[in-house]
Design a protein around this nucleic acid. Structure first.
Length: 495
RNA sequence: GGGCCGUUAGCUUAGCUGGUAGAGCAGGGGACUCUUAAUCCCAAGGUCGAAGGUUCGAAUCCUUCACGGCCCA
C-alpha cells in the first residue's frame, strides 16, 4: 500500500482513507488466517531462548495491533490475541521496501497476521522476526490511550469491548467467572446432580420475594412474568423423581440497582432429595471452597477485607446473632408480637436505625439487616429465620415461629439461601394464603397462590434440601472486584 | 428518593478570585537498523455533557435537566 495523503487531523477521515486504499487491493477484510499459533503457548515454547538467540521454525500469529514503534530500517509492532502479546521484529531487509513502508500506515487497533521465526532481541524481548504480514481487519476508530488506558467507568460499562481490549484485568475477571461457574458445574455433576432448564417466561412468578418484570404473549393473549426464581419448577423436578437437580440461569427482579444488585442476574439453585438444610450448609461451604481454589486461593481480598473461605464456616441462629449485636432476644416471651418486639427495639435505643415493619417476621428481618448483616464479613451461616418471611421452609420442630433455613453471608452480602423445603401441601397452602392476604394488603413482594404447584406437591414431594446462590456476588468475592457491574459484561445502565 | 463528587480533543487530563482553552498519547508530514509509555523536528485537531440565566465578557458563577461514581434510605 502506498502512503495515504492526509493532513486535516481528523483521525476518522485518515482511517477511512486508508481503508479505501486497502479495499483497492482487495485485502481489507480477508476471511481467515490459518494456520496460526496462539501467542501464549508460542511464548511459553520459546521462553528459554536467550537474548540475541534465533530459532529456525516458522510460525504464524494473528492479533490486534497494540503498539507500533517505527524506525528507519527496523520497526517493532506488538500484536495481542486472547492468550497474550508478542512483539514483531520487522526489518526492511526481510520485508522488502514496499511491505516495510506499508507498516507505517497500519493503525493501532488493526488486526494483522504475520509469519516469521522466533528470536529474542538484544534487549531481551521475545519476538517474531517476520518475513511477511497482512492486514486481517481494518480499525476505523482509535483505541483508548495506550498508557492510561480506558479508566472512565461509564465508558467501560457502555463500551465493554473497549474495556476488554485495553484492560487485561477486566477480561481476566470474565475468564475467572467462567472458571468459577465451570467448577460449580463440575462439583454438582460429580455429586450426581442433573442440570435442567426451566421456563424463564412464567404464568405466575414465585420462589422469592421480589417484584417481577411483566411481558405479554400475543398469541396466547396473556401476560407472562420473567422469572424471579427457578424454585417452584425445580421442585416439580424433585417431585418427578430427579432426586438431585440444579439450574444455573438468569433471574429478573424489578428493583433498584446497586453495587450488589442488577435487575437481571445469574442464580444457581440446587435441590437434593432426602437431605435437610444442615447437609446443604456443608455442601455450600465445600462448593464455594472448590470455586475459590479454581481461580485462586481460599483467602480473598474484597472491599478492603481479607476473607478466609476455608470450610467449615461458623453457624449461628438469627436469634443468637441479633441478641449478640443488639441485646434483643427475639425468642423471649417479651418479644413475641410485633408490638412487643418494637417496644424492645425502642428500649434498646435502636428506633432511629431500624425501620418499623408490619409483621413480627419482617420486623425481625429489619432488625437483623440493620444490626447484624453489616458485621458478617467472614463467611457465616445464619440459621432459623422467622416463619413469615420464609414461605417455603419447614418449621423448626423446637419452635414453630422459626424455620429450618440458612443464609450464607460473605463480606456483608447474602450469597446463599437454603431451606429444608416445605413438602407438606396443607402447610404450603396455608403459607400461600397468608401471602395472598399480605399481597392484598399492599405487599407487592408477597407470593401468589400457585394452585398448579400445590397440586404437584399433593402427589408427594420427598424431604428435600434446596439452595439458591447468587453467582454474580460469588464472582465478585472470588475475583475481588467491588461492584456487580464489574462481573456482568453488559450491566443495566440508563440510556 | 436524599447527600457529596464528576462530565474539557478519539483516549488520559491542566485550566486559581470570570478575560475568550494548554498538554501527553493516538492520528498526519519528516529523521532514525534493537525499540518496548521509543526518541527528535514540524503541522493539525475543542459547539468545554445539555438548556436557560447573571455579566461588557462564562469551561469557570447561578438554576434546571441528562448520564455516571461513592455514600445514605
Amino acid at each position: 500500500m502506498d502512503g495515504v495523503p492526509g493532513h486535516d487531523g481528523d483521525v476518522f477521515a485518515e482511517r477511512r482513507a486508508k481503508l479505501a486504499a486497502w479495499r483497492k487491493t482487495g485485502t481489507a477484510y480477508p476471511t481467515k488466517y490459518q494456520p496460526r499459533d496462539e501467542i501464549g503457548p508460542l511464548r511459553a515454547a520459546y521462553e528459554r531462548l536467550e537474548a540475541g538467540g534465533e530459532a529456525p521454525d516458522v510460525h504464524r500469529v494473528a492479533g490486534r495491533l497494540m503498539a507500533k514503534r517505527i524506525h528507519g530500517k527496523v520497526s517493532f509492532l506488538v500484536v495481542k490475541d486472547m492468550s497474550g502479546e508478542l512483539q514483531l521484529f520487522c526489518a526492511l531487509d526481510a520485508l522488502g521496501k514496499d511491505r516495510y513502508a506499508a507498516l507505517e500506515h497500519l493503525d493501532l487497533g488493526d488486526h494483522i497476521g504475520a509469519e516469521g521465526t522466533m528470536m529474542r532481541t538484544r534487549r531481551g524481548e521475545l519476538s517474531l522476526r517476520i518475513t511477511s504480514w497482512q492486514l486481517l481487519s481494518k480499525s476505523l476508530r482509535p483505541l483508548p490511550e495506550k498508557f492510561h488506558g480506558l479508566t472512565d467507568v461509564e465508558l467501560r460499562y457502555r463500551k465493554r469491548y473497549l474495556d476488554l481490549i485495553i484492560n487485561d484485568e477486566s477480561r481476566e475477571v470474565f475468564v475467572k467467572r467462567a472458571a468459577i461457574i465451570k467448577s460449580i458445574r463440575d462439583f454438582l455433576d460429580g455429586r450426581g446432580f442433573v442440570e435442567v432448564e426451566t421456563p424463564v417466561l412464567q404464568p405466575l412468578y414465585g420462589g422469592a420475594m421480589a417484584r417481577p418484570f411483566v411481558t405479554h404473549h400475543n398469541e396466547l393473549k396473556r401476560d407472562l412474568y420473567l422469572r424471579i426464581a427457578t424454585e417452584l419448577y425445580l421442585k416439580r423436578c424433585i417431585i418427578g423423581g430427579i432426586d438431585r437437580v440444579y439450574e444455573i440461569g438468569k433471574d429478573f427482579r424489578n428493583e433498584g440497582v446497586s453495587y450488589k444488585h442488577n435487575p437481571e442476574f445469574t442464580m444457581l439453585e440446587t435441590y437434593e432429595a432426602y437431605v435437610d438444610y444442615n447437609h446443604v450448609m456443608t455442601m455450600v461451604e465445600e462448593m464455594v471452597g472448590a470455586a475459590a481454589r479454581a481461580v485462586g486461593s481460599l483467602t480473598v481480598d474484597f472491599r478492603g477485607h481479607e476473607i478466609d473461605l476455608t470450610p467449615p464456616w461458623p453457624r449461628t441462629t438469627m436469634r443468637a446473632a441479633i441478641l449478640e449485636k443488639s441485646g434483643i432476644d427475639i425468642g423471649a416471651d417479651d418479644a413475641r408480637t410485633v408490638a412487643d418486639l418494637q417496644a424492645r427495639i425502642k428500649d434498646a435505643g435502636l428506633v432511629d436505625k431500624v425501620p418499623l415493619a408490619p409483621t413480627w417476621g419482617t420486623q425481625v428481618d429489619e432488625l437483623f439487616s440493620e444490626t447484624v448483616e453489616p458485621h458478617l464479613i467472614q463467611p457465616v451461616f445464619i440459621t432459623e429465620h422467622p416463619l413469615e418471611t420464609s414461605p417455603f421452609a419447614k418449621k423448626c420442630p423446637h419452635d414453630p415461629r422459626f424455620v429450618e433455613r440458612f443464609e450464607g453471608f460473605i463480606a456483608g452480602m447474602e450469597t446463599s439461601n437454603a431451606f429444608s423445603e416445605l413438602n407438606d401441601p396443607d402447610d404450603q397452602r396455608a403459607r400461600f394464603l397468608q401471602h395472598v392476604s399480605d399481597f392484598a394488603a399492599g405487599d407487592e413482594t408477597a407470593h401468589q397462590l400457585d394452585e398448579d404447584f400445590l397440586e404437584a406437591m399433593e402427589y408427594g414431594m420427598p424431604p428435600t434440601g434446596g439452595m439458591g446462590m447468587g453467582i454474580d456476588r460469588l464472582v465478585m468475592i472470588l475475583t475481588g472486584v467491588p461492584s456487580i457491574r464489574d462481573v456482568i459484561l453488559f450491566p443495566a445502565l440508563r440510556s
